[in-house]
């Protein structure tokens, strides 16, 4: 490889990985927008279903204190969303938000595979593994 070629090689967007990343980054921005929209819809539903939230201060501590039954598994979220529970719709948006960077890492593996960069396929796969293990660790901790 000549020095000139080597220089071009380091220019991020000229590599498949760079181009891939640019597309992914734009998709991520879309993902964030969709997640936030979902969160806002859910928040609206919470108030629509509980008109007393607008005036009564009785519910606030229940909504914000430990011990509240929060949706914290995919099943909770899906079951709640099916009956349009506001809290579950917010949780769906939050789940989408958490999943967007994880999706980015998954797609990066493909980009490195196209580049035939075995070392970085391994590195990125290991990062993905850590991200997936985090969902299991939450149950233990």
């Amino acid at each position: 490889m000549s020095p000139l070629e080597k220089k071009t090689k380091t220019r991020t967007t000229d590599e498949p990985v760079g181009r891939f990343e640019l597309i992914i980054s734009e998709l991520l921005r879309l993902g964030v927008t969709l997640s936030l929209a979902t969160i806002l819809v859910g928040l609206g539903l919470m108030f629509a279903h509980h008109p007393d939230y607008l005036r009564s201060s009785a519910d606030l501590s229940r909504l914000t204190s430990p011990g509240a039954a929060l949706p914290h598994s995919l099943r909770d979220v899906i079951e709640g969303v099916r009956v349009w529970r506001g809290q579950a719709v917010v949780a769906l948006g939050l789940t989408m938000l958490i999943l967007t960077p994880i999706l980015r890492v998954a797609v990066s593996i493909i980009a490195f595979a196209i580049e035939r960069d075995r070392v970085f396929v391994a590195v990125t796969s290991a990062v993905l593994a850590v991200l997936l293990i985090s969902f299991v660790l939450g149950k233990v901790g």
């Binding site: 919470m46 914290h72 809290q87 917010v90 958490i98 969902f135």
Partner: peptide, 12 residues
């Protein structure tokens, strides 16, 4: 991920 599964992310 850890916080969510543990129930430490309060939607409200």
């Amino acid at each position: 991920g850890v916080y969510f599964v543990r129930g430490d992310i309060d939607p409200f």
